[in-house]
Amino acid sequence: MDLEHQNIVVAFRHALIDRLGETLYKTFADSHIAILGLGGLGSHAAISLARNGIGKLTLIDFDRVEMSNLNRQQYRLVDLGKYKCHALSEVIVSFNPLIELIAQPIRLTPDNVADYVKDVDLVLECLDEAEAKAWLVRTLRSELPDIPFIAASGMAGIGSANQIHSRKVSDNFYLCGDETSDVAEMGSLICPRVAVCAGHQALTALRLLANVED
């Protein structure tokens, strides 16, 4: 590490501690979160968590960045054709010099998902297909019930952001979204509405790590 980079790292850490306080800084810096799916939800959630000083993120998606993603996902023209996990890593390291990233351009299945997330503190489900969301919840809630799991359902269309909420379903299982707006019916995802839902997921994650109860 050259001196200039070392100075940036020290200053970045100092600024984070200044904003968060020592206790929260340490809690977040010591945490490892897995984000499964890096579309509208996952790209927004990852950036929020990285900005708030989460120490380590595992980013998993087999998809590559396409032009049709740019209306709502946190990628750039220069990212077209790259794996989303690699492109998002580049975006994140452009503002966070401390974070550790594990990028996995793999297709998750019920048979392999537990292996990829068994060592994390928390999992965010950010997939797009309803069936995939459902098997992911069923699989991880049964194989890794002690790892908090934050799923999302219902953020399509241009309905009010006030319909989007976070709730605890049961121990270690949280759900964010309006729980009804299906992209198959609403036809599209609108950037700020997906971002609101991703914000709910990221905030739920930070609140759990900070041990804040309602």
């Binding site: 996952g42 950010c126 019930p145 359902s153 219902g154 009804t180 707006s181 992209v183 997906v194």
Partner: peptide
């Protein structure tokens, strides 16, 4: 979580708590 193979076996009784979470597409 209730595994799918147990949907048939579990009979709902007094005091049970059942939560069915439905997923819709989009992300």
């Amino acid at each position: 979580i209730l595994p799918e193979k147990d949907y048939d076996k579990v009979i709902l009784k007094d005091g049970d708590q059942l939560e069915v979470v439905t997923f819709v597409g989009g992300g």
